[in-house]
Write a protein that binds this DNA or RNA. Structure first.
Length: 717
DNA sequence: CATAGCCGCCTTTTT
DNA sequence: GGCGGCTATG
């Protein structure tokens, strides 16, 4: 690397870049250039004579990996370094060492929705009720176990209560189904890799020798499985460099273990620690607000945020009547920015829940402001996309029954439920797979002639697709789309399915891109890559559009102008995270992450009323707003419009009581009902004299009552 | 076997 | 307010 390019770095950054060998931990606040340090380190290593293929950098998202790879190239370094997420790295390792990892290389990767389908089967097979054991919750429970590398046999030892025992059965069945389908879920990718590395010293050595330098970004959000993989990979050479910021840990709910970063020095006793505290991103006002907020977290190590930018505009907190006014306000402000020459790609809107985007979208459309939503897996979870992908998946992995069952009668081709059950029974009795049973439908005596013919035709079609799986993907998808009649069925459905057709066309375009970028395109590789892909990865930073995303998706990004909306109690912090102190702290970190994305302009807004599940509800400003050290008005200009309301000055909820005859009840308030007794308010629906209140009574029952008839009295204070 | 319509369920964040 | 699943009907 040229010295001139090193001059772009601060002294602390240089220190981190230059320390090439041995364990290194970079603790760095937001906007301090930690990703930059990793990028420069890769270049510096190559500069020092390390072959690129000896370098393995792990990022948090595919998008981050892409950007890092490009930056390294732009620094004039030769390509060849492994730069990817943990999951992609694991796919690569598992495919190479499949036999040693007790898998086949052509495994299908199951995403959250496939997992839910599989889990449902597992619950049923365990002869348990899906209402007592909701598949989604069971999926999360199993996922948590797996991310901690707790196998069924290990869990067996600690499962002593009723629920755990049931969970164990479900877990076992779930794994069995996955194995039968030759499928791995996200957690398996990590778990299998971790056990492969720990259980096969020769494989571990081989990989340790290949990846002589391991660099991990966003280390605070690694889970236990990832931690064990990292440890195994670096065990032979100790060349591990991790960067992270405990204050930006926002994935605890997904198994991220903050202890990984806190205990780095114990794991690697001779670790060198570098702290980066200078912030090159945000103005002092923004940093002050961020610092005030995060200081409220008790469970944290003190860290400074030292501004380097000159002072500029104040952080603004806007109070709105409802979500529509909030959206209009926002659109108006962005419009003004654009008129003053700001590029729309410099503007971003963050929210806690995806559903908050809709109203914003509508306002932006109304004001003709182009935008893009950076959403999790929206695109790949569309029905038509999943259908096409299911066709493709069974081409490389015929054991994937989940995909096969999805499309055997999609579009309808006369192979109904009864026929499918008969095929299943036949396969089971003859100890063959479902797909094998389709080969000779005439052998399935329980089937009548019509379905037999249809099955034969279906089987022939699938086999026909199987020619040339190691060539370009785009033409294959096109062929599948047409020959499966999916295209025709969408066309016949008319107007409302036009989007669906366009989505498939978009998929074909993306596949063409893959074809042109990949040296040796293969369907297997394409599918395994795409399974780890999210919409956020295709987020385009160049186009002149406002970016809309969740606070989680905002991690790692930065924008000149940031709008954070819906700062209301129950939304941020989210009500599902309001029970434990730890959860509240994570919500606070989430807000912190959002704030620190802003370079110069930060606008935070909340609404006094918000429609929630179809009902207009009164909302309370987020407690976090009071922690920023910024004065704000709880009134908006046209406050009196729809509801007679607050006189300012008093705390919010109390002022509600004073103006109307009807008493109002805050969520969580303790009340007494003449017949049901004591209970706690779960929800208060403010509809004037028709207000209703939902109360969970101590008897266990939950009731929604009309306020004017229910003779409620407040207890306590 | 396919479809329409109804009911009840859930609804945080995502690699 | 949206979706999956179930049921009744053609």
């Amino acid at each position: 690397m040229q010295n001139s390019s090193m001059q772009a770095l601060t002294a602390a950054q240089k220190k981190a870049v230059k320390h090439l060998e041995g364990p290194l931990l970079v603790i760095a606040g937001p906007g301090s250039g930690k990703t930059r340090v990793i990028t420069y380190r890769i270049a510096a290593l190559i500069d020092a004579g390390v072959p690129p293929y000896n370098i393995c950098a792990v990022t948090f998202t595919n998008k981050a990996a892409d950007e890092m790879a490009q930056r390294v190239l732009r620094m004039g370094t030769p390509p060849g370094a492994q730069i990817s997420t943990f999951h992609s790295l694991c796919v690569r390792i598992l495919r190479e060492f499949a036999s040693r990892a007790d898998t086949k290389p052509n495994f299908t990767i199951y995403d959250a929705s496939d997992q839910a389908v599989t889990m449902k089967q597992a619950v049923k097979l365990s002869e348990l009720d899906t209402s007592n054991f909701p598949p989604a919750r069971m999926r999360d429970a199993v996922s948590t176990l797996k991310s901690r590398l707790i196998t069924t046999s290990q869990f067996e030892k600690q499962a002593d209560d009723f629920f755990s025992k049931a969970l164990l059965q479900i877990y076992k069945k779930y794994q069995k189904i996955l194995a039968e389908n030759n499928a791995l879920d996200f957690d398996d990718l990590l778990l299998k890799t971790a056990f492969l590395l720990e259980g096969s010293p020769d494989v571990c050595n081989k990989l340790g020798n290949r990846f002589k330098f391991l660099l991990i970004d966003e280390y605070q959000d690694t889970n236990h499985a990832q931690y064990r993989i990292a440890k195994a990979l670096a065990s032979s050479h100790n060349n591990i460099c991790a960067t992270g910021d405990p204050d930006q840990s926002i994935y605890r709910w997904r198994g991220a273990d903050i202890r990984n970063i806190l205990a780095f020095e114990e794991d690697w006793p001779d670790a060198k620690i570098v702290k980066l505290e200078k912030n090159f991103r945000s103005t002092p006002n923004i940093l002050k607000a961020a610092d005030n907020l995060i200081s409220e977290n008790q469970n944290r190590k003190l860290k400074k945020l030292v501004p380097t930018k000159p002072s500029a505009e104040e952080v603004e907190i806007t109070c709105c009547e409802d979500e529509f006014e909030e959206a209009d306000n926002l659109a108006e402000k962005i419009k003004k920015l654009a008129e003053n020459g700001t590029s729309l790609s410099d503007c971003a809107v963050f929210y806690r829940v995806n559903s908050a985007s809709r109203v914003i979208e509508e306002a932006l459309i109304k004001n003709k402001i182009p935008y893009q939503i950076v959403r999790g897996v929206e695109f790949y979870s569309r029905k038509e996309i999943r259908d096409i992908l299911a066709y493709l998946k069974i081409l490389v992995n015929p054991d994937d029954q989940t995909s096969l069952l999805r499309i055997i009668n999609t579009p309808p081709r006369g192979i109904g439920k009864t026929s499918i059950q008969r095929i299943r029974d036949y396969a089971l009795n003859n100890n063959i797979t479902f797909y094998e049973a389709l080969k000779k439908p005439d052998n399935i005596k329980t089937l009548s002639t019509a379905p037999r013919k249809k099955i034969a035709a279906f089987f022939g079609m699938i086999e026909g697709f199987k020619k040339n799986l190691d060539s370009e993907i785009a033409p294959l998808i096109e062929r599948v789309f047409v020959e499966s009649s999916l295209k025709k069925s969408l066309q016949d459905a008319g107007e409302e399915k036009i989007d669906a057709i366009q989505n498939v066309e978009e998929l074909i375009n993306a596949a063409a891109q893959y074809d042109s970028e990949t040296e040796k395109p293969s369907l297997l590789d394409y599918l395994q890559q795409i399974s780890l892909f999210t919409d956020a990865d295709s987020y385009d930073t160049i186009t002149n559009k406002v970016a809309l995303m969740t606070l989680h998706a905002a991690k790692g990004l930065e924008f000149e102008n940031v709008f954070i909306i819906a700062l209301e109690d129950g939304l941020l912090p989210h009500e599902r995270s309001s029970n434990e102190h730890d959860q509240i702290e994570e919500e606070r970190r989430l807000f912190f992450v959002g704030i620190t994305r802003a370079k110069s302009l930060l606008n935070i807004s909340f609404a006094k009323y918000r429609t929630f599940r179809g009902q207009l509800l009164r909302s309370i400003p987020s407690p976090f707003l009071y922690e920023l050290g910024i004065d704000f008005q709880e009134n908006s200009s046209n406050l009196q419009s729809r509801f007679s309301d607050t006189s300012s000055g008093e705390p919010y909820y109390e002022s509600l009581n004073s103006t109307e005859q009807q008493p109002r009840f805050r969520k969580g308030a303790l009340v007494r009902h003449p017949t049901f007794g004591l209970g706690r308010v779960q929800q208060f629906n403010d509809m004037g004299e028709n207000s209703t209140v939902t109360i969970k009574f101590n008897t266990g029952q939950t009731k929604t009552l009309m306020l004017k008839y229910a003779k409620l009295t407040k207890t306590g204070k």
